[in-house]
């Protein structure tokens, strides 16, 4: 199972990459493997204000819909429209082209609630 060391994780199987005050969010390799066959992504609107832990996107496979939660409070700067038109990217490249949305972080201290790669690996093993 691929769990990159340089990312942060949530117990809901999102990964978070932080650059400056922007958090990029996607679903982990483990999560895409459990979902399989992602066929639809519902993205949050640009500019939407979201709270940490709020459901902001939906990733759907043939069998089930899964909500994706924002790991931090802030405003949505972008949704991945490429993945929206090609949802299979979430399966083929979950940490790259299959990212879901970006949020401008308001309170960096919330990042301390995220877990590191070792802790996430423990969680899924």
């Amino acid at each position: 199972m691929n769990v990159p060391e340089n990312l942060k994780y949530t117990s809901d199987h999102e990964w978070v990459s932080v650059e400056g005050d922007i958090a990029t969010v996607g679903v982990t390799d483990h999560a895409q493997g459990e979902l399989t066959d992602v066929v639809f992504i519902e993205l949050p609107e640009k500019g939407r204000h979201v709270e940490a832990g709020e459901a902001v996107a939906v990733v759907e496979s043939v069998k089930a819909a899964s909500e994706i939660y924002s790991p931090v409070t802030g405003s949505v700067t972008e949704g991945n429209s490429v993945a929206e038109s090609d949802p299979a990217l979430v399966n083929s490249d979950p940490y790259g082209d299959g990212w879901i949305f970006r949020v401008r972080i308001e309170d960096a201290s919330e990042l301390e609630d995220l877990i590191d790669a070792d802790a996430y690996t423990d969680l899924i093993s």
């Binding site: 399989t36 043939v62 069998k63």
Partner: peptide, 9 residues
């Protein structure tokens, strides 16, 4: 089992 590999496959 819901699936062995992928529902679509």
């Amino acid at each position: 089992p819901i699936r062995y590999r992928s529902i679509i496959e």
